[in-house]
Design a protein around this nucleic acid. Structure first.
Lengths: 254, 254
DNA sequence: ACTCCCCACCGTACGGTGTATGCTCAAGCG
DNA sequence: CGCTTGAGCATACACCGTACGGTGGGGAGT
């Protein structure tokens, strides 16, 4: 179970807001905070969060394990740094004239791509909000389209929290299903079919008629990536509709 | 990182659909699948998912560690069993005459209470859908209010998935914030204040004006439990509004 | 009643994790 | 040139999940 915001807050904050890339005093082996974080991100990208160990990072850098601790208090703080670093990849928003809804869709799509590019990101549980320069900028990006359209600040916060949670959850589901293919080697549908056969033999759906009906319809086609993307769009639409309704009642009340 | 659906699917399914409480052949020490699962749930309730180890479970039951493996293939399958068991606690729904929206609110509130009662539940990542008798029943409960109001089966599935993800994410955030109080011993607000002071010294918000403004409004009161509940209700309302809009356009098209 | 076999039970061990401790030794400085 | 400082790191510890192989008690067969 990997957490962000679980380390010493003071130490994390100091590291997060360090001057990145500045000519830091470099020791014999050339180890820096930046190089450690970069190596950790690459490693997690190539393997997974479960395989991200201090020993593996050290090996990749060609240094001893404990050398890492000269630059970083511990693994928890390192994860804070990883999260903030990749958060820097979300593009700076250009507020278009197509309206808030289209802008939000762009930002959400960006964040979703970020999650799919760094497939470990969606597994990190936010113990406490860790505010680094890039996560702060990313939050600003998400907030901007919602600004000046009749929402209070508290509402804007709650909406971004809802949207962020939605994208993370949705991307995680997608990644998990892709992993099944990667690990088992067979397609999702064939994997499901083989287990489906076993399940129907023991399962009793007599008391759950609705679930049985919906399950039967869904099982056939819901497991490929296309369907997941359609589902994502559908759910996002639902969310945005809810937001739009709120805005309309707000402006109508004026 | 704890997963559900990560063990051998066949083994998990066989165990999930076992006849619970049946007079199983009990060995010398009285160990059964049920007693192991119950002990694991109690332990996780009292401590946390991180502290749930096979050794701790064995100690609680007064048996050797490896004895557990006689009844259960491994920890992954045990977690599947834990999830399905506590899922049995969600009350059977009685479809009221107050309409689908009120019914959904009831079910969602039930599921939310379940998450808060078993604070480890929200940390379990669903690798693959694990269909046990109780999770199936719970899904049926969530689906039932959405049945017969003009939605397709695929839409019903996507809406339940959206709602389930929302409740889990929201409850997890609430639990995490409560944990900060439990661990640090100080209130959320005072904890935040002390770190806020440190943060504002190093933080640069000149390029993130919206985030700064929203952050300033939010930081003051957003960290107590009351505010979290209000936020949950607000976000759920948004979601339900989106669903209602969909239904309305659907029935209007008839 | 005696024997035998099966399997629930479990002690030990292996390879992994994060990190505390204390040593070594190169670099910078007076 | 000698000394201090701290980066680098080998070792060790307390955990984790679980593979392996031995033991011994209870049920079945004669």
């Amino acid at each position: 179970m990997e957490h962000s915001g679980k380390g010493d807050p003071a130490k994390s904050i100091a590291l997060l807001w360090r001057k990145r890339g500045e000519s830091m005093p470099i020791g014999r082996s050339g180890l820096t905070v930046d190089s450690i974080v970069d190596a950790a991100i690459e490693l997690a990208d190539e393997t997974s969060l479960a395989e991200l160990s201090m020993r593996a990072i050290a090996k990749r850098l060609g240094v001893g394990v404990m050398s890492l601790y000269t630059h970083i208090p511990g693994k928890n703080e390192l994860i804070d740094l990883m999260v903030d670093t990749v958060s820097g990849e979300v593009a700076i928003p250009i507020r278009t004239d197509r309206g808030w809804r289209s802008d939000i869709e762009d930002v959400v799509a960006n964040y979703r791509r970020l999650c799919l590019r760094h497939r470990w990101l969606v597994y990190i549980i936010e113990t406490r909000p860790v505010i680094g320069p890039n996560t702060l900028a990313a939050w600003n990006v998400l907030l901007t389209p919602l600004d000046g359209i009749g929402l209070t600040e508290v509402e804007m916060d709650r909406i971004t929290s809802l949207l962020g949670g939605f994208v993370t959850t949705s991307a995680r589901r997608e990644i998990e299903l892709a992993n099944v293919e990667r690990v088992t080697g067979e397609s999702l549908n064939s994997w499901w079919m083989s287990n489906e056969a076993l399940l129907t033999r023991v399962m009793d759906t007599s008391t759950t008629p609705v679930a049985e009906r919906v399950g039967n319809v869904v099982q056939e086609g819901d497991l490929d990536q296309d369907n997941l993307r359609t589902g994502f769009a559908f759910q996002l639409d639902l969310l945005l509709n809810g937001i739009e309704l709120l805005i309309n009642t707000r402006t109508a009340a004026l």
